[in-house]
Amino acid sequence: MVDTESIPGADRIESAIRSAKYEKGFALAPFLTAGYPSLDRFPDFLQGTAAEADLIELGIPFTDPVADGPTIQRTSRTALESGASIPWILDLLATTQIDTPIIIMSYLNPLLAYGFDRFAKDCASVNVCGLIVPDMPFEERQPLNQIANNHGLCVIRMVSPVTPNDRMKQICTAARGFIYATTICGTTGADDAIDVSAEQLLTRVRTHSSIPILAGFGIRTANDANRLSHHCDGVIIGSALLEAIDRNEDPADFLRNIRPISTATNKNPGIKP
């Protein structure tokens, strides 16, 4: 059974999230658009972000990011114009020492162009642990899921507020690494306030999932993160971080503000790793 075999990438992700939940209250998983704001400046941002992160999500820029809001559309366009590509980001990872587990986010088409097997193999060789493919729903998960597993990587599954319960159960049962719960319907970077429906979704996911749950989409502040962290294992922050970079803020400072360790509480501990 694929679903129960050991996948090293998934194991690393799960253990990183559980440790963070236990030690720091919740896991912090920042998202960066690979190659933004420029190919030259990105490596520093990557290092600074990784230092504060428990898990880091790197987005391969794509011309038509339909699941993304204005910020990531813009950063993707800039990154593409400056020449970011899959070979570029893989080369960078090969020459950069990063201990934080890495997840690559990409729309399906750039992966198809690169070749699934070649991509999974090259990712595994630079310590990437998992993949997120927003336009590849559960029904279309093969053959990429199997190919990724063969190379020790997992493909992260997403659920949303409109995912029905029976479907959520099916998705959670097959998922590895963590469940990515999009707390709102919409695109990334929304400015709708995080409300009770987000908490309801996370509670619903918890009843179906035995692996960690990360909340994402529209999480902008320490308040958002703290509030949601009572119902999940961590948060993904993308657009707000990229906007901080635009304001010339240090990404590490921005992330420390999201999760001030000194005040972090441990109200809902995970299992001690």
Binding site: D135, P137, F138, E140, V159, S160, T163, R167, I171, G186
Partner: peptide
């Protein structure tokens, strides 16, 4: 039943749209 004409077609949308 997967929406394909030979290899072409399918449903490559985010989870939020699958139900719709």
């Amino acid at each position: 039943e997967t929406g394909r004409f030979g290899p072409f077609g399918g449903r490559f949308v985010s989870e939020t749209l699958m139900h719709a």
